[in-house]
């Protein structure tokens, strides 16, 4: 009950601000999140600031994955491969060619977007589990490529990736880096909302619900499927570049295994597939759990795999779905009360 009231209150507050100016709530959110590293390092230690950075990177990944899987309904398990492509692109461009972060970020986004086309093309013919297998193959082959090619890091990984800097300010520790990745993550969330509520987002959802009916309504199904894959790949590329430039500036193919993919899937399943905020909440919760269970490294896949199965059985809509249902139910009860035939 209280949760619903709070949520409606927050929602209404944001709605009012948004009507004043569409970007206002987002600017306020950035301002509100500014003191977080100070609080975290004051209450705990610097490690938790690192965790906050990781969460921001995973928010980019899960929000991006939600666009292709949640909005457009295309099951892809190759997302970590695109993340790896973004990270390796940023690493090589900065160490071998001396590009700055401001060049490697768009380059990583662009290259990952191109790779997204490759991952997206199988979706023209494949659906569901078959598409999942195809994308899984593509994602894993990226990781194996990296692990056997010396130029891409192979078994030693790529190190010495410089920290980003702007106007003489270097983002060279976790607190400083937070001020770079937090706004990027918020921009990612904002863009995801912008896509969802536009005609493009409706086209994605229509394809998820019924491909044939979407085509009959004049929607170019292939174009929009590919667009969803490319957009989500660009998110992954962005996350990859953010990861590569984070201290210690080192990437290894072990950062892009299938375990990471399962973790990522768990985030959006827990948060609620198709809910933008769900992806964010999932990223926060799962990153923290992942971190807290690191001592039981060997049992993590078991833990995550079984919790995924349990979630799909008992809470397929995720946290986002539960909140949605609360709000809808509450609205219904309110409407009944206003109509005067409520029983309570």
């Amino acid at each position: 009950m209280n949760l619903v009231v709070t949520l409606q209150g927050v929602g209404g507050f944001f709605g009012r601000m948004e009507r004043t100016h569409p970007l206002l709530p987002w600017l306020l959110a950035i301002v509100a999140l500014l003191p977080l590293p100070l609080i975290l390092s004051g209450l705990f230690n610097d490690y938790y600031v690192y965790l906050a950075n990781r969460i921001c990177i995973f928010i980019m990944l899960s929000v991006g994955l939600n666009i292709v899987k949640g909005f457009c309904g295309q099951v892809t398990v190759g997302h970590v491969g695109l993340y790896a492509i973004g990270a390796v692109t940023a690493a090589i461009l900065s160490t071998n060619f001396g590009f700055s972060f401001w060049m490697t970020l768009p380059a990583a986004i662009f290259i990952a977007g191109l790779a997204g086309v490759v991952v997206g093309v199988p979706s023209f013919r494949l659906e569901g589990a078959y598409l999942a297998l195809a994308t899984l193959g593509l994602g894993e082959s990226v990781r194996i490529m990296i692990s056997v090619t010396p130029y891409l890091g192979s078994s030693t990984g790529l190190g010495g990736i410089p920290a980003p800097s702007a106007f003489g300010f270097t983002f060279d520790n976790f607190t400083r880096y937070y001020y770079l990745v937090m706004p990027i993550a918020l921009v990612g969330i904002y863009l995801s909302f912008a896509i969802l509520r536009s005609a493009t987002g409706r086209a994605f959802q229509a394809i998820r619900e019924d491909t044939i009916a979407a085509a009959a309504a004049g929607i170019n199904v292939r174009k929009y499927k590919l667009l969803a894959f490319v957009i989500s790949a660009m998110y992954a590329g962005c996350a990859g570049a953010m990861f590569a430039h984070m201290r210690p500036g080192y990437i290894h193919h072990n950062n892009f295994t299938i375990i990471e993919m399962v973790t990522l899937l768990l985030m959006i399943v827990l948060g609620g597939i198709g809910h933008v905020w769900g992806g964010v909440i999932g990223a926060i919760i799962v990153t923290i759990i992942y971190d807290q269970t690191k001592d039981f490294y060997f049992y993590q896949p078991l833990l995550f795999g079984s919790s995924m199965v349990l979630l799909v059985i008992f809470m397929p809509q995720g946290i986002g779905g539960l909140i949605d249902r609360y709000i809808v139910t509450q609205r219904f009860i309110d409407a009944r009360r206003e109509a005067g035939d409520g029983t309570s």
């Binding site: 005609a199 409706r202 086209a203 229509a206 998820r208 619900e209 019924d210 009916a213 309504a217 929607i219």
Partner: peptide
């Protein structure tokens, strides 16, 4: 073949897609 998880209005807006 309705888009069942979308609202009634959104269903129509999808139909209107080509005129956006």
């Amino acid at each position: 073949r309705l888009f069942s998880e979308m609202t009634v209005l959104q269903n129509l807006l999808v139909g209107y897609h080509t005129h956006t």
